[in-house]
Amino acid sequence: MAKIKSASTITPKPGVGLKTWLIVGFLFFAIPIFSAALFSVQVGDGSYTISSYTRMLTDPGLSESLWLSTKLVLMTVGIVLLLMVPTVTWLHIRAQKAKRVVEFITLLPLIIPPVVTALGLLSSMPSFLKDSPYLLGFAYGALTMPYTYRALDAGLNSIDVKTLVDAGRGLGASWRQVLSSVIAPNIKSAIFGAIFLAVALVLGEFVVSSLLIWNTLPVWMALVGMSDAEGAVAISVMSLIFVWLLLMVMSLLDGSKKVKINVGGV
């Protein structure tokens, strides 16, 4: 009896607490973003203008750096899909024992400072690679590995990879077909997670790209910020909205299958 009573007096508390924390958390993120947005449209005398946005959008530097970053994003996504997914799958079915070693290797990008990575690349790579953005793309492939590997590994742990691969192979599917129609669709969420982490990292990475002297979006933003604070903030707000939209689109794509399954169940 006493238990029931005390439970009923306690119950509302976590509800209120949770709400409070959610609001605090929301404000913690929302206030700086809102202030930044305000800063980017406010003029000294208190009136508002979107001139910093139009100025940035028409800057030739934007399209150039955006195009470069887009290429790098696509390349990183390609590395995740074509290199990471098959490799991690292979580890799962053939080399369980090697997984510990691989797990450690994937952590190296977090352990080695990006400055060291960049200088290492500069001093070791042939110049034809240093002159091409592909070197940066591969560097990003490696830098994102701690996140992409873990996302994919978790996805593969949730399915019976070995049996599914055997079943697919036995039915006559090539390795490519097994990966694309049996494995990938069943770890779709994990692949989207990995891609999203990779994209977020590429769109925010500054040290390696600036040291390799490539004007990616973050590098260009930093350069602009030195002379035009409002413009840089305007760009930040826009990229925030862009990433947010990207996230929405990806979670929509990811969710579509689950919806279909539920419909099938009715």
């Binding site: 019976d160 599914l164 079943a167 129609s181």
Partner: peptide, 14 residues
């Protein structure tokens, strides 16, 4: 061209 049925459930979930 061998048809195999496994001990573990092996249908493709997707």
């Amino acid at each position: 061209d061998m048809g195999m049925v496994f001990q573990a459930y092996s249908l493709f979930p997707n």
